Amino acid sequence: MKNTKEEILKAYQFRHACKVFDVNKKISDEDFHFILETGRLSPSSFGFEPWKFVVIQNQDLRKKLLPIAWGAQKQLPTASHFVVILARKKEDMMYNSSYISNFMTNIQRLPQDVVNVKGDFYKTFQESDFNLLESDRAMFDWASKQTYIALGNMMTAAAQIGIDSCPIEGFHQEKVESLLREEGIMSGDTFGVSCLVAFGYRLEEPQHEKTRQTMDMVVEWIK
């Protein structure tokens, strides 16, 4: 157990926001499938998995993303794998949507009586607990928050097998979504772009050691 803890913390120390990757080193199919699997198995609110992972390996499409993704200028040309994480919008995430109904019945395989009870809880949660029905943006932001759970898990899993990553929010959301629609990757109003993430192998070691606030600055115990 001690060794496991040490290995996990070692991976956290290893991980950093890698800006430039070694273009001559590619992640194997097996290793990248493992990274994606940790995203797929990630938890989400009510277990409704409001995400989709679009792996952009097409170099022409990466070049089209460059002018509208200012935070990925070095990562797009050099990353072994580049992922656009999509979050589902209100159309799908509403308590009475066909997506939610199908998910409970055919993905979670819940009996109808459980579907009814869970559906009622979900309706109350959206209407009053989190006030998600007040705007389309509120619903999308709630779904996007959950994609960051998958994002974090994928980056940590990558670090544990010696693969670097960089999460990216530096992009023009509307223009990226427009490009993905033009390319036939997105259609309708089902998804929006939550974040981007690049994976690969670092070209150079970080120039600065990892800095964080101390434990007592970020943790408060109420006893």
Rank of each mutant, 00 (worst) to 15 (best):
residue 216 D to W: 04
residue 147 T to N: 14
residue 51 W to S: 10
residue 85 I to Q: 07
residue 122 Y to F: 15
residue 204 E to P: 00
residue 198 A to T: 07
residue 202 R to G: 09
residue 127 E to F: 00
residue 65 L to W: 05
residue 127 E to I: 07
residue 110 L to Y: 12
residue 176 V to K: 02
residue 21 F to V: 08
residue 65 L to F: 08
residue 222 I to V: 09
residue 37 E to M: 02
residue 69 A to P: 13
residue 105 T to K: 15
residue 103 F to S: 06
residue 154 M to I: 11
residue 132 L to G: 15
residue 135 S to A: 13
residue 155 M to K: 03
residue 154 M to F: 11
residue 130 F to L: 14
residue 97 S to A: 03
residue 204 E to S: 04
residue 3 N to F: 10
residue 152 G to W: 04
residue 161 I to W: 04
residue 206 P to K: 01
residue 34 F to I: 03
residue 115 V to Y: 06
residue 145 K to A: 13
residue 2 K to L: 15
residue 86 L to F: 12
residue 127 E to Y: 01
residue 159 A to T: 04
residue 196 L to Y: 07
residue 15 R to W: 09
residue 87 A to W: 00
residue 199 F to E: 06
residue 179 L to A: 03
residue 102 N to L: 08
residue 82 F to P: 07
residue 31 D to L: 02
residue 82 F to H: 06
residue 125 F to H: 13
residue 129 D to E: 13
residue 80 S to E: 05
residue 13 Q to C: 01
residue 217 M to S: 11
residue 132 L to M: 11
residue 67 P to T: 09
residue 85 I to K: 02
residue 73 Q to N: 11
residue 195 C to Q: 13
residue 142 W to S: 13
residue 90 K to A: 08
residue 50 P to H: 02
residue 152 G to C: 04
residue 96 N to H: 08
residue 100 I to R: 02
residue 29 D to Q: 08
residue 213 Q to P: 10
residue 148 Y to R: 14
residue 65 L to P: 11
residue 51 W to R: 05
residue 136 D to K: 12
residue 61 L to D: 02
residue 49 E to Q: 15
residue 181 R to A: 13
residue 7 E to W: 08
residue 212 R to W: 11
residue 114 V to R: 14
residue 1 M to P: 10
residue 106 N to P: 02
residue 39 G to F: 07
residue 186 M to G: 08
residue 57 Q to L: 00
residue 14 F to H: 12
residue 66 L to H: 09
residue 66 L to S: 14
residue 28 S to M: 05
residue 96 N to L: 01
residue 30 E to D: 07
residue 196 L to H: 08
residue 141 D to I: 10
residue 219 V to N: 03
residue 145 K to C: 12
residue 156 T to Q: 12
residue 154 M to S: 13
residue 117 V to A: 15
residue 38 T to S: 11
residue 99 Y to L: 07
residue 35 I to Q: 02
residue 144 S to K: 14
residue 54 V to E: 04
residue 122 Y to S: 15
residue 98 S to R: 06
residue 137 R to L: 15
residue 211 T to G: 05
residue 53 F to C: 04
residue 19 K to T: 06
residue 149 I to H: 14
residue 137 R to C: 13
residue 120 D to T: 14
residue 57 Q to K: 04
residue 204 E to G: 00
residue 169 E to G: 10
residue 51 W to Y: 10
residue 48 F to V: 12
residue 145 K to V: 07
residue 106 N to T: 06
residue 9 L to Q: 10
residue 175 K to Y: 00
residue 69 A to G: 09
residue 216 D to K: 12
residue 26 K to H: 10
residue 171 F to D: 03
residue 223 K to V: 05
residue 183 E to P: 03
residue 176 V to Q: 06
residue 90 K to D: 09
residue 164 D to G: 06
residue 133 L to R: 14
residue 197 V to A: 11
residue 89 K to C: 13
residue 105 T to S: 14
residue 175 K to Q: 10
residue 206 P to T: 02
residue 91 E to M: 03
residue 127 E to K: 12
residue 65 L to C: 09
residue 36 L to H: 00
residue 2 K to A: 15
residue 64 K to Y: 04
residue 220 E to I: 01
residue 186 M to A: 06
residue 220 E to K: 06
residue 207 Q to C: 01
residue 157 A to P: 05
residue 175 K to V: 00
residue 47 G to R: 07
residue 222 I to G: 00
residue 188 G to P: 08
residue 99 Y to T: 05
residue 5 K to F: 11
residue 177 E to Q: 08
residue 138 A to K: 14
residue 74 K to I: 04
residue 177 E to V: 01
residue 53 F to T: 06
residue 25 K to N: 10
